[in-house]
Design a protein around this nucleic acid. Structure first.
Length: 725
DNA sequence: GCATCGGATTTTTTT
DNA sequence: AATCCGATGC
């Protein structure tokens, strides 16, 4: 098989690059995923490297799965066995295997952000600090940043009094994690990095094993990740990094695109390969992309080119407010679909903040068009899902206090603050964690009779018995059976499903989780929980349903769509106001727009509004500064007509103006022209049938069912409907 | 121990 | 606008 078929010269160069460090600077759409997979296939198929000796790190689990499938497609089953996963998943695996060298045991759980917040709040209150003055989230961010920079609690640098506070919280927080036999996301990287630093024998074992280390999205690595890569590749020195500094959008999470520069300094002999040919977008779209990114300073210039045709002009559109922005987007999608120019699944609508999805969702709902939303209301964030997972985590590791606190009174058992406090102090007295004490109480309640008030005793022993039964059997049961026992013995169904629609939805979510657990028949509870902790929103993006996708610009990284709408191109939104006074952050906003623009293959719409609502109140806003960096000649501005009409009436009551402009001085009676069952023709949406019609505000509002679009509501004065038959 | 109410606070982006 | 928190009352 020819593993180089269909690759251009630069891509081939990258795939067959010799030993030693290689840096591939890959522009958007330049086929970097392809280069990575073909390189893995080449190493195995042509160079005789065993899959076992290859490590490939990606940004999302989805990317890892995709890459594995592609390699197996190329080479067959013999290609299985490459270590392929996200940084976090790879580190978690190493830490479990090497737990003997670490301050926790291999049953550790991974705390999510809620768990982390709970811990930080506890530490802050234990230290008698004011959580108004020291906001837990801000402190947690500082701790996280420190960890990403490989700074341990004792070494936390002190420049202000606040640093002093952060350091104390950091110390307490880290201790508390250990008592819980838990780590947070950042710890996965931190502990692995230090493990490899402090234990030369361990480092050597991994470094010898990984003859080839490959990294995707290199521009979004943080210091901890960079150091990890160096350690893991330290024996063979074959490190292959692919990235694009212009697409670095995770600075706030510690990512540092300067790692690309650092790489060139640390490996002066590195081969550097540039991928500039774009296989995704039309030239028009690429021109806009380059105009957007060009003003950023200190870039190594890249010139993107394509052999694709010029394509359509990029559309620019201004609306009166964010509500109209949403309906413009939905209407445009409907009309493109109606004219059969695109399929609904071709479309992605992107925005800066999750909050912006609400108006879009409403607009889709109003138009009765289906869509799918990435992120925001995440499946794993649902209360009922978190409850069940917390139960399972508790069974897996009784020291997991956040999980205990979450479920000890769910369904309600009459455990409140008072009982919890007693439980905690009693546990402390005999040096147990609350979970361990409960476990003991469940096995032999008698011996604790004197320590608890009668009522609390009964409740706690009852809960302890449940817990200890599950824990003693966990060895024999797979994740699904454990889940079923929990659901059954806590009567969770009756608790969560109150018979309402929402209750039913909640129960459905539990069943969905159950379906996921059923895929772990021959795997352990530990694996199940780990995978759940490390899934990301992007992993849940599925391309099967033929409906538009709504997602943040961050979530859009690495994806492509034939039709892209970027909404909210206003000052304060994109760029976000939080980056106004930080030039580095402002540059990242620009890169974010660049990422969005370069997701588009054929059609791109840039949309902004004159007014946006924040905290419930509308305010006038400026168009995004980035728009003025795009030459007019590259844009097709479709907003002028609508803008003039609407801007003329901003200071008046809009209903009145509409009325005056439409029917100056006329009588206020109009007749209903359309009736249910009538067949009509819409200039854009085609043929449809009238479902109902009514007179409202001197206009006729008609609900029409269109074959391709479903129900639409139109105003007769604007829609230009024709009667048929 | 639990439910309800009012007020404050919030919006960046997420492995 | 929506959620979270704390205080109050049962």
């Amino acid at each position: 098989m020819d593993l180089l078929a269909g690759l251009n010269t630069q891509q081939q160069q990258a795939v067959i690059a010799g030993l030693g460090p290689v840096l591939v600077m890959a522009g958007p759409g330049s086929g970097k995923t392809r280069v990575l997979t073909q390189r893995i296939a080449y190493l195995i198929g042509k160079m005789g490297v065993r899959p076992y000796n290859i490590l490939a790190v990606t940004f999302t689990n989805k990317a890892a799965r995709e890459m594995e499938n592609r390699v197996i497609n190329l080479l067959g089953e013999s290609a299985r066995g490459v270590t392929l996963g996200t940084f976090h998943a790879t580190c978690a695996r190493i830490l479990r295997r090497e737990a003997e060298h670490l301050p926790f045991n291999s049953n550790f759980v991974i705390f999510d952000e809620d768990d982390q917040m709970g811990l930080v709040k506890r530490v802050i209150s234990d230290l008698n600090l004011d959580d108004k003055q020291y906001r837990p989230l801000a402190i947690l961010n500082s701790i996280s940043n420190a960890k990403n920079e490989l700074i341990l609690p004792d070494e936390y640098p002190l420049q202000t009094y606040r640093d002093e506070v952060v350091k104390r919280v950091y110390i307490g927080y880290q201790q508390m994690l250990l008592t819980n036999n838990a780590v947070d996301f950042d710890d996965l990287l931190l502990y692995t990095a230090f493990l490899l630093d402090d234990n030369p024998a361990v480092r050597e074992r991994y470094a010898r094993r990984y003859e080839h280390v490959l990294v995707d999205e290199f521009q979004d690595t943080n210091l901890a990740q960079y150091v990890l890569l160096r350690r893991l590749s330290s024996h063979h020195n074959n490190i292959f990094a692919v990235g694009d500094a212009d697409q670095s959008i995770y600075r706030w999470r510690g990512a540092d695109y300067r790692n690309v520069l650092r790489f060139e300094q640390d490996y002066p002999d590195a081969q550097v390969i540039l991928l500039e040919q774009n296989y995704r977008s039309t030239q028009q779209i690429l021109d806009v992309a380059m105009a957007v990114i060009d003003p950023n300073p200190n870039r190594s210039p890249k010139r993107l080119f394509t052999e694709r045709s010029e394509g359509l002009k990029v559309m620019l559109h201004e609306t009166y407010d964010d509500r109209q922005e949403a309906s413009f987007i939905v209407d445009t999608i409907a009309s493109l679909v109606g004219r059969q120019q695109i399929k609904p699944g071709d479309v992605a609508v992107m925005y800066r903040t999750n909050a912006q999805s609400r108006l879009l969702e409403e607009a889709f709902l109003h138009a009765r068009l289906p869509y799918k939303l990435v992120g925001a209301q995440r499946f794993y964030g649902r209360r009922e899902v978190k409850d069940i997972i917390a139960y399972m985590r508790l069974v897996h590791n009784p020291n997991d206090e956040p999980s205990l606190l979450r479920v000890i009174n769910v369904p309600p058992r009459g455990v409140g603050d008072k009982t919890l406090q007693v439980l905690r102090t009693q546990a402390q007295k005999i040096s147990l964690t609350p979970g361990e004490l409960l476990f003991q109480m469940g096995r032999d309640g008698e011996q604790f009779k004197a320590t608890f008030p009668h009522r609390a005793m009964i409740i706690l022993v009852g809960f302890g018995e449940l817990l200890s039964r599950w824990i003693t059997q966990v060895g024999e049961l797979d994740p699904l059976k454990i889940m079923d026992r929990i659901i059954d013995e806590t009567d969770y169904h009756a608790y969560i499903d109150d018979g309402t629609d929402e209750g039913n939805d909640r129960w459905e979510n539990v069943m969905e989780l159950r379906r996921l657990a059923s895929e772990y028949q021959d795997r352990t509870l530990s694996e199940f929980l780990e995978n759940i902790a490390l899934v990301s929103d992007q992993d849940t993006i599925e391309t099967s349903a033929n409906v538009p996708t709504l997602l943040t610009l961050h979530a859009a990284k690495g994806l492509e769509y034939p039709v892209v709408f970027i909404s909210g191109l206003n000052e304060g939104t994109l760029p976000h106001s939080r980056s106004f006074d930080d030039p580095e952050a402002m540059q990242e906003e620009r890169r974010l727009l660049y990422v969005g623009v370069t997701r588009a293959k054929d059609r791109l719409y840039l949309v902004y509004a004159q007014n946006r609502s924040a905290f419930g109140y509308p305010d006038p806003v400026e168009p995004s500064r980035f728009l003025s960096d795009i030459p007019d000649t590259l844009l097709d501005d479709t907003s002028s007509l609508r803008t003039m009409r609407l801007s003329n009436m901003t200071s008046f009551d809009s209903k009145k103006i509409q009325w005056e402009s439409k029917r100056p001085g006329g009588a206020s009676v109009i007749l209903q022209r359309y009736h249910a069952g009538a067949h009509v023709q819409h200039p854009v949406w085609g043929d449809g049938m009238v479902l109902s019609s009514r007179i409202q505000d001197d206009d006729e509002i008609v609900d029409i069912f269109f074959e391709n679009l479903g129900m639409k509501r139109v105003a007769a004065s604007l829609a230009n409907l024709k009667m048929k038959g």
